[in-house]
Amino acid sequence: MALREAVLFDPFPMLSEQRDDGGSALPNTGDLEADLKTVPRVTVEKLNDPRYDEPMRALNAEITHDPPLAALYAERLDGPMRELKKQRLRGAQRAGQVAEDLGLDVAVDMPWGHLLNRWLQRSGALTSDYADSIVETALNGLRSSR
């Protein structure tokens, strides 16, 4: 890894949400909704923290304009975290909590993609309540219960 990448990635230990015990980034308590709300809430806290906000915005800007850096970000940070999130969702599939044919990549993108979009565009308050509402909408769907 080049010095530039080290300088860009090393200040962001919060991007690695894996627990010290090697467990999943998403807990598996049996309550899927509560488990899925855990990491987006932490993400909101980190993105609202002034110590991370500007450096994270700078990293995102660099990734946008530098394909090799984007690939390294995907390899070192985003890819491993996506896999941990998909592991939790696979467990939910095995438990019958979500559809067997659930598109895991889309399911992972739903909460974190919306959070990142709102944060990057500064298009509204980034709160735990907002994060929770994304998860609730994803789980409950957009259809009327009638």
Score class of each variant (00 low, 15 high):
residue 8 L to E: 02
residue 63 I to A: 11
residue 55 P to H: 06
residue 15 L to E: 01
residue 11 P to G: 03
residue 58 A to Q: 13
residue 53 D to T: 14
residue 20 D to W: 12
residue 37 K to A: 14
residue 57 R to L: 13
residue 13 P to D: 02
residue 58 A to G: 13
residue 53 D to S: 12
residue 27 P to K: 00
residue 12 F to D: 00
residue 29 T to F: 05
residue 11 P to N: 07
residue 10 D to V: 05
residue 28 N to L: 04
residue 47 L to C: 09
residue 56 M to R: 02
residue 34 A to Y: 00
residue 40 P to M: 08
residue 28 N to V: 06
residue 60 N to T: 05
residue 59 L to D: 09
residue 24 S to H: 08
residue 21 D to S: 11
residue 12 F to P: 01
residue 49 D to Q: 11
residue 10 D to W: 06
residue 17 E to Y: 07
residue 36 L to N: 03
residue 9 F to P: 04
residue 58 A to E: 13
residue 19 R to S: 14
residue 43 T to A: 12
residue 25 A to G: 15
residue 30 G to T: 05
residue 45 E to P: 03
residue 42 V to T: 07
residue 32 L to R: 03
residue 50 P to E: 14
residue 21 D to M: 04
residue 51 R to V: 15
residue 38 T to A: 12
residue 59 L to P: 11
residue 20 D to Q: 12
residue 10 D to H: 05
residue 8 L to N: 02
residue 39 V to A: 14
residue 38 T to R: 06
residue 22 G to C: 00
residue 16 S to W: 09
residue 62 E to G: 01
residue 40 P to K: 05
residue 57 R to V: 08
residue 62 E to W: 03
residue 25 A to K: 01
residue 25 A to T: 13
residue 7 V to G: 01
residue 63 I to F: 01
residue 60 N to E: 01
residue 12 F to L: 10
residue 62 E to T: 10
residue 45 E to G: 13
residue 51 R to G: 04
residue 40 P to G: 08
residue 42 V to E: 05
residue 31 D to W: 02
residue 52 Y to D: 13
residue 6 A to N: 07
residue 14 M to N: 01
residue 61 A to Y: 05
residue 7 V to Q: 01
residue 57 R to E: 01
residue 40 P to E: 11
residue 25 A to S: 12
residue 41 R to P: 00
residue 57 R to N: 09
residue 49 D to I: 13
residue 49 D to G: 11
residue 32 L to F: 07
residue 44 V to D: 05
residue 41 R to S: 08
residue 2 A to V: 12
residue 10 D to Y: 04
residue 33 E to R: 15
residue 59 L to T: 04
residue 46 K to S: 13
residue 24 S to L: 14
residue 7 V to D: 02
residue 31 D to C: 06
residue 22 G to I: 09
residue 59 L to C: 10
residue 38 T to D: 07
residue 34 A to H: 07
residue 55 P to I: 12
residue 58 A to F: 12
residue 23 G to M: 07
residue 3 L to D: 12
residue 7 V to R: 01
residue 62 E to M: 14
residue 65 H to T: 14
residue 29 T to W: 00
residue 46 K to P: 02
residue 48 N to H: 09
residue 29 T to N: 00
residue 35 D to H: 05
residue 60 N to R: 08
residue 63 I to M: 09
residue 39 V to F: 00
residue 29 T to A: 07
residue 25 A to F: 05
residue 51 R to H: 10
residue 16 S to C: 10
residue 26 L to T: 06
residue 45 E to K: 09
residue 34 A to C: 12
residue 11 P to W: 04
residue 30 G to F: 05
residue 46 K to D: 13
residue 54 E to A: 15
residue 19 R to T: 04
residue 30 G to A: 02
residue 49 D to N: 15
residue 25 A to P: 07
residue 61 A to W: 04
residue 57 R to F: 08
residue 64 T to S: 12
residue 9 F to Y: 04
residue 38 T to G: 09
residue 7 V to T: 08
residue 5 E to Y: 13
residue 11 P to F: 03
residue 11 P to R: 02
residue 27 P to R: 10
residue 47 L to V: 10
residue 54 E to I: 15
residue 16 S to V: 06
residue 16 S to T: 02
residue 3 L to P: 00
residue 17 E to R: 05
residue 2 A to W: 03
residue 13 P to L: 10
residue 65 H to D: 08
